[in-house]
Design a protein around this nucleic acid. Sequence first.
DNA 1: AAATCGGGGTC
DNA 2: GACCCAGATTT
Length: 352
Amino acid sequence: MAMPLSDPHRIDSAAVLGWYDRHARDLPWRVAPADRQRGVRPDPYRVWLSEVMLQQTTVAAVRKYFLRFTDLWPEVADLAAAPLDAVLREWAGLGYYARARNLHACAQAVVREHGGAFPTSSAELQRLPGIGAYTGAAIAAICFDEQIAVLDGNLDRVLARYYALDVPVREAKEDLRAALQASVPERAGDFAQAMMDLGATICAPRVASCLVCPLQPDCAAARAGEALLYPVKPEKTERPVRRGHAFVMTDAAGDVYLQSRPHKGLLAGMTEVPNSDWGVEPDGPAFPLDADWRHRGQVVHVFTHFRLELEVWSARVDGAMLDGGWWSEPAALKGEALPTLFRKVLARAGLD
DNA sequence: AAATCGGGGTC
DNA sequence: GACCCAGATTT
């Protein structure tokens, strides 16, 4: 494809909407197209909550978190009034924890600065914490039918195929956005959700069901029988390995020693067991105190930009001199703000 | 523009 | 294992 997209072929939005009316996914935060046509409007709070949870996260992973959050906090004012600690505990395991902090800050801003009602335009929404170009457009389109391009990872793939884009999406993002913008119909919310459903079901990463796709016959990649060649991948960088040690301490009552991570950086503000720095070179264990330490094996955890290998040690430490943390009963571990990494560590030490 | 920031579903 | 997901924010 010639760059930029000087005169991009319009997407047949009527065909896409017709497909959506028959094949829309049933999701807890969604108002079905038939209900929308009858005038039912989505709840901006629920749409916003789902969109933040869905950032770089699959529908399958989000579902139970969404149900739990809306059960605990049915309206934005409920979430705004909740302690941040409670929000972090409930978010534990979902990842990208800055989202949980921004979520809480955003709820408070909506209550304090907008009278408890979400702004209705993408531009205003993007001024709120944790709402960027995608999320602002998605909320504005889905809730208020703002005719704006909603471009997520699904759309990157669908459009890269539709236009047979011969460079990585990152290099043509704004061109794709302009092309999509020119195709947005009046039913902007349904169109946005339709295109995402299309990407999630028909135009999937490893399977392209072109024969039943409403974008036929306009899709350039499908015409050439080469849908899976797109999107063109950027060069991938290899993932470095970091190594360290984690120390699981229990007292006479069987309680486990926990502490909070720093409020900035990786897993910010979440709960952990004491552990070493994570270095490139293997390092000897610097035990936090003198005890009968036993090696319990290794935990491997893969983050976005490195792979972590932690040696797990445990010891019984009665009347230990420790500062800054707290002792948690094993039965209470489930409710702690423990990210998956440290749940793996505790499981390795026999405390799951 | 590039780096940082998690974890799981799925092949 | 590798890929990638309804991305945002910081550097």
